[in-house]
Lab assay of single mutants.
Amino acid sequence: GKMTGIVKWFNADKGFAFITPDDGSKDVFVHFSAIQNDGYKSLDEGQKVSFTIESGAKGPAAGNVTSL
C-alpha cells in the first residue's frame, strides 16, 4: 500500500535519496528512476512524498514516489 514520509536527503550527483517514513519505520532507499515527476527527477530535503515499498536487489526500496 501507499505510505507517506519526508525526504531525509537527496544526492543529485548519484541520483538517489532516502525517505523517513511517517510510521517510524527505518529510512527507505529511493533511486531516481522511482520518482514520478515529469521532467527532471529530483527531491528536496524535507519534502513530503507518498511511495510504495518494492523489494529490490539490495533490499527494500521506494517505488512510485510522488510529491504531496
Rank of each mutant, 00 (worst) to 15 (best):
S55Y: 12
A57H: 09
D13E: 14
G63S: 11
D23P: 00
S67H: 15
K2W: 13
L68W: 00
K14F: 11
G46T: 02
K26E: 11
S33Y: 06
Y40F: 13
A12K: 11
F10W: 11
D38I: 10
D22T: 05
D13W: 05
S42C: 15
L68I: 15
P60L: 08
F16E: 05
S25E: 04
Y40C: 15
P60H: 09
P21Q: 02
K8E: 01
G63V: 15
D38Q: 10
G15V: 02
S42K: 10
E45F: 12
L43H: 02
T20K: 10
L43T: 02
I53T: 08
K48Q: 11
A57C: 15
F29W: 11
H31I: 06
P60F: 02
H31Y: 11
G46H: 03
S33K: 05
G15W: 04
I35D: 04
G56W: 06
V7T: 00
D38W: 10
K26P: 14
Y40W: 14
F32T: 07
V30N: 00
A61C: 15
K48Y: 09
F16C: 15
S50G: 04
N64H: 09
L43R: 01
F29T: 05
T20W: 03
D27Y: 03
A62G: 10
P21Y: 04
G63I: 14
A57G: 09
Q36F: 10
A61P: 09
K41I: 13
G56R: 07
F10Q: 03
K8A: 04
L43I: 09
G46D: 02
K58W: 09
M3T: 05
V65I: 12
D38V: 07
K26V: 09
V30A: 03
K2G: 06
W9F: 09
S50W: 11
G24D: 02
S33E: 12
N37F: 11
V30P: 01
S55H: 14
D38E: 07
A62I: 08
S33T: 11
L68P: 15
F29P: 01
S55R: 06
Q47W: 05
G56M: 08
V28P: 00
A12V: 14
W9H: 05
I53D: 03
P21N: 02
G46I: 01
L43E: 01
N37Y: 13
N37R: 05
I6S: 04
P60N: 09
K26M: 11
G56C: 15
G5D: 00
I35W: 15
K14R: 07
N64P: 09
K8C: 07
T66I: 15
H31T: 05
F29H: 06
Q47S: 10
V28R: 05
T4I: 05
N11L: 05
N11E: 07
F18W: 14
N64F: 07
F10P: 01
G5V: 01
G1H: 11
F10Y: 11
E54N: 07
G39L: 12
G56F: 08
S55P: 11
S50Q: 10
E45I: 14
D44N: 14
S50P: 01
A61E: 15
A61Y: 13
S67I: 14
S50F: 09
K14T: 11
D38C: 14
T20Y: 02
T4W: 06
A34R: 08
G59E: 12
A34P: 04
S50N: 06
K8L: 07
D38P: 11
L68Q: 15
G15L: 06
G63P: 09
F29K: 07
N11H: 06
F18Y: 12
G24L: 02
P21H: 01
K2D: 04
G1L: 13
S42R: 10
S55C: 15
G15C: 14
F29L: 14
Y40N: 13
V28Q: 03
Q36L: 14
N11D: 15
S25V: 02
K41A: 10
F32Y: 11
D27A: 08
S33W: 06
I19F: 01
G5Q: 00
G39Q: 08
E54F: 06
D27V: 05
I19P: 00
G39V: 07
K41N: 13
N37C: 15
Q36G: 08
A12S: 11
D27E: 08
L43Q: 01
W9I: 04
F29D: 02
D22K: 02
V49T: 01
D22A: 06
K2N: 09
Q36K: 05
K58L: 11
S42P: 07
F29C: 15
V65P: 07
I53N: 04
K48H: 13
G46S: 02
G1R: 14
K26H: 08
V7G: 01
V49A: 01
I6P: 00
T4N: 04
A34Y: 09
W9M: 04
G24A: 02
T4Y: 06
G24F: 03
G15I: 03
T20Q: 11
G59T: 09
T52L: 10
S42F: 12
T66E: 15
D23I: 02
S33R: 04
F18M: 13
A17L: 08
A12D: 05
I35V: 07
A57K: 07
N11V: 04
P21K: 01
K41D: 11
I6T: 13
A57Q: 10
Y40D: 09
F29E: 07
F18T: 06
K26S: 10
G46V: 02
G63H: 08
N37A: 09
N64A: 07
D44W: 15
Q47V: 09
H31F: 08
A57E: 14
D22S: 05
G5T: 01
M3E: 02
I19S: 00
D27L: 04
I35M: 07
V7W: 01
V30H: 01
D22I: 06
V30E: 01
D44I: 14
S33F: 05
I19E: 00
A17N: 00
I6M: 05
G59Y: 07
M3A: 05
N11K: 04
S42T: 12
V30M: 07
K58R: 08
F16V: 14
T52S: 09
N11M: 05
Y40S: 10
S55L: 13
Y40A: 10
S50M: 09
V65T: 14
E54Q: 07
Q36I: 13
I19D: 00
V30Q: 00
L68D: 15
I53R: 06
N37I: 13
N37M: 14
D23N: 07
F32Q: 06
E54I: 12
S50H: 07
G59K: 08
G56T: 14
F18C: 15
G24P: 01
A12W: 09
S50V: 12
K26D: 10
V49D: 01
D22Q: 04
K2I: 12
A61I: 14
V49Y: 01
S25G: 12
I35H: 03
F10G: 02
S33C: 15
S42L: 11
S55N: 10
D44G: 14
D44T: 13
I53P: 06
D44M: 14
V28G: 00
G24R: 03
G56Q: 10
I35P: 02
E45S: 12
G24C: 05
E45P: 14
S50E: 10
Q36M: 12
D38L: 11
S67R: 04
F18Q: 11
A57P: 13
K58E: 14
V7D: 00
G39E: 11
P60T: 13
G5F: 02
K26R: 08
